[in-house]
Design a protein around this nucleic acid. Structure first.
Lengths: 150, 150
DNA sequence: TTAATAGCGGTATTATAAATGCATCTTTTG
DNA sequence: CAAAAGATGCATTTATAATACCGCTATTAA
């Protein structure tokens, strides 16, 4: 049930970017410092998000990243399925479970997983960073405090 | 999202016991051999199940175990919550996430988890081992083949 | 045309937690 | 009291997530 930190961090990055003015670029360094995660780690996550089109990464001096599409078009389910390597709740195949054939539990667990995912699928990034929200306020403050130091 | 093998194995043990005649005892050894899991491992799982009342463990010679209550009274959600140590999809507290305060994602993920659990909660062990089911047939066969060898 | 900035990507290492194994105990019955 | 069977604590191994390292490529300004 527990999601990996990759997924967790991916959400943090996306939320942070969603709080930025559209088209303004945030650097890896900024995200790294704001969330206190290692540069390399943020790098991997951003690359994955970039490949999936959730963020645009701009190389070179004055480069950085921004959302690759509108926050309202970034479905949270898609982020989870992108970041999580193993989603299956159980592995009945290797090694093969002696009672796998005809086992009713598999279907129940997979349906439950689908319930989990489809609930998340009801939301987009824009639901996490609403106009007057506390989250937006906090992000702005973090961004400003970073800008002041640099 | 992935459940631990402890949970997986707990289900296998319960399913196996549910296929037994009521009050007839199965030994750890039998479960061990039938599912090809180590004795020590099965032990741990059975002990946890016993403490929760899902199985009755009978010590001493001619001991063994049986279901601690009717299969229809063993809710699958309770089994999962018993066996899984960490159910929380994310940990926003340690270390504290900079945007935890007012974060909408937490609620969404926890609600999704609740969706997962409540779907499982709609079923009991009796749904996994129905009277004419393939599962019951397989269990019986496995039990007989074990008995023949011992 | 080079220095500085910033993202890319493969590989290696470390940390954590799950999975497993070991040793020794108690309980029950013939 | 011996054999069978479960109880329990601790140690070890393994898997995988998390992190770090290193050299690369792209872009821009002096």
């Amino acid at each position: 049930m527990k999601l990996t930190k990759h997924t967790d961090y991916a959400f943090r990055v996306l939320i942070y970017l969603a709080g930025y003015e559209k088209d303004k670029l945030a650097t890896i360094k900024e995200v790294t410092e704001v969330f206190d995660i290692s540069r390399d780690h943020v790098m991997k996550i951003v690359q994955k998000l970039a490949k999936a089109g959730f963020v645009d990464a701009v190389r070179g001096k004055f480069g950085g990243m921004r959302l690759g599409r509108n926050a309202a078009d970034i479905n949270l389910r898609d982020v989870v399925t992108l970041m999580e390597v193993t989603l299956a709740p159980v592995n009945c195949e290797t090694p093969l479970c002696r009672i796998a054939q005809g086992c009713q539990l598999q279907a129940i667990l997979f349906d439950a997983q689908e319930m989990f995912l489809s609930h998340i699928g009801q939301y987009t990034l824009s639901d996490l960073v609403k106009p007057q929200s506390e989250t937006l306020y906090i992000i702005k403050a973090l961004g400003e405090s970073f800008a002041a130091k640099n």
